[in-house]
């Protein structure tokens, strides 16, 4: 982007964080927060992070909504597993082939999978494009593959690729 704002989203986020922490919208805090946002963006730019590109901003809203619904659903599922007495754990590892290659897309997929109760991202083999996850309720492997490939990966590829 521009020379003073290499990462505009990060700068905007820092400004928002500063205003939320101080709980005010006074001009002084906006100036101070903007200075922090620009300084933070410049400080991060020395790390030379590859900049991503978002193609479909509206899909992000859709993805966020889907993830929220899935988090509520899997909270209920995991609660049931924990509270059922004498239930044998059927947890296990499974692999899923992925077509997603964008680093930001993969990072967001990792956060989605891990923060949804019941699934944890373990490893991604970027050479083969195979994802290894651990699932708490591993009864139907095909259903989990379908969930990750069709519900998350398709949208993430729309957004980032």
């Amino acid at each position: 982007m521009t020379r003073w704002m290499p990462y505009p989203i990060l700068s905007a986020f820092l400004l928002g964080m500063w205003l939320l922490l101080n709980q005010s919208l006074s001009p002084g805090h906006i100036v101070l927060g903007s200075i922090i946002g620009v300084a933070g963006g410049l400080a991060i730019s020395t790390l030379q992070i590859p900049s991503g590109r978002i193609h479909r901003p509206l899909s992000i809203v859709k993805l966020a909504f889907i993830v929220l619904v899935d988090i509520i659903r899997s909270n209920i599922a995991v609660t049931r597993i924990v509270l059922t007495p004498g239930r044998k754990a059927q947890s296990g590892f499974m692999t899923i082939p992925l077509d997603l290659r964008d680093h930001y897309g993969l990072a967001i997929l990792a956060c989605i999978i891990t923060s949804t109760p019941g699934t944890v991202w373990v490893n991604f083999d970027s050479a083969k494009g195979v994802l290894l996850i651990h699932v708490l309720d591993l009864i139907d492997e095909a259903a989990w593959t379908d969930l990750i490939k069709n519900r998350y990966e398709r949208l993430l590829r729309e957004i980032f690729e």
């Binding site: 988090i71 509520i72 909270n75 995991v78 609660t79 597993i81 924990v82 509270l83 754990a89 947890s91 590892f93 891990t114 923060s115 949804t116 109760p117 019941g118 699934t119 944890v120 651990h134 708490l136």
Partner: peptide, 29 residues
């Protein structure tokens, strides 16, 4: 209640990889 269920899962589930799932109840909902 959800946080408590998560930590109860920490006690009840049998191996480490299963237990990893339990605290996410507390950290999400």
């Amino acid at each position: 209640g959800l946080t408590l269920i998560g930590t109860v899962g920490l006690l009840r589930l049998k191996n480490f990889y299963a237990r990893v799932h339990a605290p996410t109840l507390g950290t999400t909902l």
